[in-house]
Amino acid sequence: MASDPSTERWRLWIQERGDAFLLYARQRTRSEEDARDVVQEALAESWNRSAGEVPDAALVYATIRRRAIDHGRSTDRRSRRDAVHVAESEAWFEPDFSEADTHLAVADALRQLPDPLREAVTLRLWGGLRFPEIAEITGVSVPTATSRYRLAIDRLRGTLSPLFA
């Protein structure tokens, strides 16, 4: 089935980046449903703002972050009886089939990090962003974003080194 260029660009973009966008959204929202909604809305908004061209990844992450905050506020106003923290219900990484289940250990170690550190390391390692982009998205200076990342890596190294030895 032939598809128009716009659809093809969209498909390739989602294929390349979609999983990392969802990973970030899962870390920024309280429920899996919120994460999926946030990703869908952010992708649509970014795509439209870029007039049908592939948006800059930093723009998408910034949009995910803003929309996740909005979702969090609306959730606060609603009953939370249905809220299930995604961290306990959804896998963050594909299985690596190692004996140590590295993917689970890394996810657990990430969950132990404070939000700003986890955000910096996620945007850097799996989002592929540069420190100036991370700084702009998170609203801090570049040195702060860099130091957050370094601190996160140091903490993860302390926790995960035995697995990677």
Binding site: L22, L23, A91, F93, E94, D96, V106, W126, L160
Partner: peptide, 8 residues
């Protein structure tokens, strides 16, 4: 760490 793939 970076070699880990985010869940699909």
């Amino acid at each position: 760490l970076r070699a880990l793939r985010p869940a699909a």
